[in-house]
């Protein structure tokens, strides 16, 4: 039994190494003085300085954040409203909508990207940053719905209906009762949508206009010319940002939950 436990530990550690070693390699290389990927030539921070001075990287970073922010806010609003509505529908329409919700989730990104591009072109919409944002909203909404739905199910309609019985208008009850109750789900849905948007390459690749670059499309373009160490510096920063975001995403709902519980006890 004891030997088993040691074997299990080693296995866990090996998988963790496999998952993290490549990322750590990039982080180490970002501090390498020279340009070589295979040789260590001393510690330096100059790739970071150069990264912040690089207009291409900074513009791609700005585009990525603008797209992700607009797409995640819009998809959170649309998705949350839809979830509340889905919750009140008859089972048949509810199942139909949830099935439709699954299509972009299970479909391959390349199909989502190409089909959206074909639609934009058919309706003579010039591909631009706007089309990228519309495309991102499309694939972000399902994630928001998936995050809010369990919470909506758990809560049910009773407090909303109680509010109506006590004379609240539907709008008032929605903002004062339904939304606060759904808040943890909405927050995690928003963060999920945001990360999905930042992470996306394939859909952006097909729906972007000429000259519009996000971090992903910029890196893809760079692969052909050769990767510069500034990108390693960028990876390090991206990784640390993701780390912080994930910690927030895990801590905030847990906190809110705790607060809610304490609130009901008091």
């Amino acid at each position: 039994m004891k030997k088993n436990r040691v074997v299990n530990r080693i296995y866990l550690i090996l998988i963790i190494i496999f998952l993290y070693a490549p990322i750590l390699t990039l982080m180490v290389l970002s501090f390498n003085n020279g340009k070589s990927m295979g040789k260590w030539t001393g510690f330096s921070l100059h790739w970071y300085a150069e990264m912040f001075r690089d207009d291409t990287i900074m513009e791609a970073l700005r585009n990525t954040l603008v797209i992700a922010l607009i797409a995640s806010v819009a998809s959170t609003v649309i998705g949350t409203a839809a979830t509340v509505a889905i919750q009140r529908m008859r089972p048949r329409s509810r199942n139909a909508l949830l099935a439709a919700n699954n299509v972009p989730l299970l479909n391959a990104d390349i199909v989502t990207g190409i089909s959206l591009m074909l639609m934009f072109v058919a309706f003579v919409v010039t591909l631009s940053m706007g089309t990228v944002i519309l495309a991102h909203i499309t694939f972000c909404i399902p994630y928001v719905i998936l995050s809010v739905l369990p919470r909506a199910r758990e809560i049910g309609n009773s407090s909303y209906e109680a509010a109506l019985d006590l004379g609240a208008t539907p709008v008032y009850a929605f903002f004062k009762v339904t939304l606060p109750e759904l808040k943890p789900g909405i927050i995690s849905g928003f963060l999920l949508a945001f990360t999905m948007s930042v992470d996306d390459f394939i859909v952006t690749h097909f729906t972007r206009g000429a000259g519009v670059n996000t971090l992903s499309t910029m890196i893809y373009g760079m692969v052909k010319i050769g990767i510069r160490p500034t990108i390693y510096a960028l990876s390090t920063i991206v990784f640390l940002t993701v780390l912080v975001l994930l910690i927030i995403a895990n801590v905030v709902p847990a906190r809110a939950e705790k607060k809610r519980r304490e609130g009901t006890h008091a």
Partner: peptide, 25 residues
């Protein structure tokens, strides 16, 4: 186990390029 998944997909693939390249790590 999910943290690496949230790291940009292109960067993760690029990491393997850096590891496996002819003059790579």
């Amino acid at each position: 186990f999910i943290l690496p998944m949230w790291m940009n997909f292109l960067l993760r693939t690029m990491a393997w390029q850096v590891l496996l390249e002819k003059g790579g790590v």
